Deep mutational scan, measured.
Amino acid sequence: MKVIFLKDVKGKGKKGEIKNVADGYANNFLFKQGLAIEATPANLKALE
């Protein structure tokens, strides 16, 4: 799953980066902790 990092995550990505991560990692950790959002077309456009 492609995500946009909202904060730096050690060993995974930095704020503003768009990366592929495992679905479970994104859903169970990144999204719940507010560290990333899904890289949907709307979210990508808002990032610009």
Rank of each mutant, 00 (worst) to 15 (best):
M1V: 14
M1W: 03
K2D: 10
K2H: 09
K2T: 13
V3D: 00
V3I: 08
V3Q: 00
V3Y: 00
I4Q: 02
I4E: 01
I4D: 01
F5T: 02
F5G: 00
L6Q: 02
K7P: 01
K7Y: 10
K7V: 14
K7M: 12
K7W: 09
K7I: 11
D8G: 05
V9A: 03
V9S: 02
V9R: 00
V9H: 03
K10E: 14
K10S: 09
K10F: 13
G11E: 05
G11V: 01
K12S: 13
K12W: 15
G13T: 02
K14R: 13
K14A: 10
K14T: 09
K14F: 11
K14L: 12
K15Y: 05
G16S: 04
G16I: 01
G16A: 03
K19Q: 09
N20P: 08
N20M: 15
A22P: 15
A22Q: 12
A22V: 08
A22G: 11
A22R: 11
A22W: 10
A22L: 10
A22N: 14
D23Q: 14
D23Y: 14
D23M: 15
D23I: 15
G24F: 12
G24M: 11
G24D: 15
Y25D: 07
A26W: 07
A26N: 05
A26F: 14
A26D: 08
A26E: 08
N27M: 15
N28Y: 09
N28R: 10
F29R: 06
F29L: 09
L30A: 02
F31Q: 05
F31E: 06
F31V: 10
K32Q: 12
K32R: 10
K32L: 14
K32M: 12
G34H: 09
G34A: 07
G34Q: 07
L35Y: 11
A36V: 08
A36K: 00
I37M: 11
I37L: 11
I37F: 03
I37G: 01
E38N: 04
E38F: 04
E38T: 06
A39Q: 01
A39H: 05
A39S: 04
A39T: 01
A39R: 00
T40A: 03
T40L: 05
P41Q: 11
P41S: 10
P41M: 10
P41W: 08
A42R: 09
N43W: 05
K45M: 13
L47I: 11
L47N: 08
L47E: 05
E48I: 13
E48Q: 13
E48R: 12
